[in-house]
Every structure is written in structure tokens, then in C-alpha cells.
């Protein structure tokens, strides 16, 4: 199985992004997804600059994929996706059916991100006929659904399967910007407040439980997903790529830990999931649950 770094979901400064990808060149990830997928106002790095950054990463041996906006609200958003699709060099990940259609128009290979709803083998088969070469499983699905989809689709090596396995889970997209709202600002004058929250803004309930993390128009899980214990199961199912979603802290350590686990070293030091991590979705349970920590996963 290969290891991928998903697109940065947060709003980071250009400096932070460039530093991050400089470090990436030396990390043991195989595939790097580049681009803005959440908010069209985040323009620290423009589409053509992402392509340039892609060239640098490709030169250091990474497979580069350009990733695109998830929620398209106007023609300018669509134009931004089109620009990425038209890059002429790299594969493109569509996070919306508009991106899928643009790739079909250009007869280009299609990669779908986790926000494209592929919930069954018949959907997977149809998109394969349209040019799908890799799909990322929707985050709310788990191992049993995945095994069934892959087995029933019976596409062999024609379509690669990728699983979002580490980092805060993208859970929802809205017309409303929750970060701006928390500052009592309208979205049109958000003052780019997300820049001040490189790991998003925590939203707790009245019992201090970190329920969600607000990332502009995106709502993320309060706990970080961690499927490092499930790599063997993924391999058995036929998963080809394991995705780590960038977080502002500890990214290199997580990459290295996952790489060691992929190389067969048992994750002994992490017998249990940390209290701020979750893995429920993978076990067909509420996403926020911690199942690996349970004696009997099946009873979790």
C-alpha cells in the first residue's frame, strides 16, 4: 500500500504552506495532493503556483495530484476547478461532480475525493467506465461496506482504492462561514480569520467535549481519525492508498509512524488510541467512538 498526504484542509499562510511542502519532499509519502479544497477565498497559493509546487515535488520523486474545490457556488468557483483540470501535467482529484464532469469532458483520468458520494459498487463501476482510476472512500463508510464495494465491483487493479486514515475528518460544508460567524463577521468581510486558526477553531459543547472543529465553511471532527491499527485489514480488503490529512502539528511523526506500520512494524507503542482520537466510522459505529481501545471491537 502507498501512503498519501491529502490536501491541506486548513487556511495556512503561504510561508507555512511552502515550509510544509519543503519538509514533505523528504518524508516517506508516495503521493501528495495539492490545492485548495475548502474555500475559494484562500488564495495564498494560486492554481498556477500549485502546479509549480507540484513540479518541485515530482522532481523529488513524489506522485503529484491536484485537488479541487468541494462546494462550488458560482462561476468563479467552477473556473478555479477548470484551471486545475486544465493543468496539462498532473492527475486531478475531483471533490464535486462538476470536477468529475470537467474531467470527462477532457477525457482525462478521474480521481474522486472523499466528498464524492460513492456508496456502492454500481456507482464505482459506472464512474470507472467514465475514466475513474482512483477513489477515496466517503469518510462515513467503514471496513464492511468497503470490503463489499470492492468485492462486488470486481474491478481488479483498474481502480485504486484510497482510505482517509489520519487527521480531523471533514464532515460537512456550508454556505455559511462558521469562523467568520464566531467573530461576528459576515462571510463577505471575513477578514481571512481562518489564517489565525491553522488547526481550525474548536467547538465544544457545554460539558467541555470537543465536538467539532470549525474550518471556515467546513465542519470537521473534534477528534482526529486514526486507523494505524487497521492497515492489515485494509490490505486484505484491497486498499491501495492510505491517506494522512495534514495537521499543523506532528505531521512528520505521524507520517513516519504510518510508514513504519506499513512496512510491517507493529505499532506497539500505540496499543490504545489517544483520548482525542477516534476510529468509529471504520467499525460501522458513530464516527466519534474509539473502538480500537475496546476489548472486543465487535462489541464496541
Amino acid at each position: 500500500m502507498k501512503l498519501s498526504a491529502g490536501p491541506v484542509l486548513y487556511y495556512w499562510s503561504e510561508h507555512k504552506l511552502r515550509e510544509f511542502y519543503q519538509q514533505m519532499a523528504n518524508l516517506p509519502v508516495d503521493i501528495v495532493y495539492l490545492g485548495e479544497t475548502v474555500c475559494p477565498k484562500r488564495r495564498e497559493i494560486l492554481p498556477e503556483q500549485w502546479v509549480e509546487l507540484g513540479r518541485q515535488l515530482a522532481a523529488s520523486g513524489k506522485e503529484v495530484v491536484l485537488s479541487t474545490l468541494t462546494l462550488l457556488e458560482c462561476r468563479a468557483d467552477l473556473a478555479q476547478v477548470k484551471k486545475m483540470v486544465d493543468n496539462g501535467e498532473f492527475l486531478v482529484e475531483a471533490n464535486d461532480m462538476a470536477g468529475v464532469q470537467l474531467l470527462i469532458d477532457h477525457k482525462l483520468p478521474i480521481i474522486t475525493g472523499p466528498a464524492v458520494n460513492i456508496y456502492n459498487h454500481e456507482t464505482l463501476q459506472l464512474l470507472h467506465c467514465k475514466g475513474l482510476v482512483r477513489w477515496v472512500m466517503p469518510v462515513e463508510l467503514g471496513r464492511d461496506s468497503l470490503a463489499s464495494i470492492v468485492r462486488r465491483a470486481d474491478l481488479g487493479d483498474a481502480v485504486q482504492t484510497e482510505v482517509f486514515a489520519s487527521g480531523r475528518i471533514p464532515l460537512a460544508y456550508s454556505a455559511r462561514c462558521y469562523t467568520a460567524r464566531a467573530y461576528n463577521l459576515p462571510k463577505d468581510n471575513c477578514q481571512l480569520k481562518c489564517l489565525e486558526h491553522p488547526g481550525g477553531m474548536v467547538m465544544e459543547n457545554q460539558q467541555d467535549q470537543e465536538l467539532f472543529v470549525l474550518n471556515g465553511i467546513q465542519t470537521m471532527s473534534g477528534y482526529e481519525y486514526n486507523l494505524i491499527h487497521e492497515l492489515d485489514t485494509m490490505r486484505r480488503i484491497g486498499v491501495d492508498v492510505v491517506r494522512i490529512s495534514p495537521e499543523p502539528e506532528g505531521f512528520a511523526q505521524r507520517v513516519e509512524a504510518l510508514r513504519r506500520a506499513l512496512d510491517g512494524e507493529p505499532p506497539a507503542a500505540q496499543a490504545l488510541l489517544a483520548s482525542d482520537q477516534c476510529d468509529g466510522y471504520w467499525f460501522g459505529r458513530p464516527g466519534m467512538e474509539r473502538c480500537h481501545a475496546q476489548q472486543e471491537v465487535s462489541a464496541c
Partner: peptide, 21 residues
Amino acid sequence: CIMAEGRCFLSSYVTGESPNT
């Protein structure tokens, strides 16, 4: 619904059941 429909997993994150599934 304040989230884009078909792309909201808040409910399954907390309860295991979502509009999609």
C-alpha cells in the same frame, strides 16, 4: 439544513446514522 445536503456527516459522527446512509 445549513450544510450542503448529501455532504453532511455530523449526524453519523455522533449517532452512526446519517441522511445519506
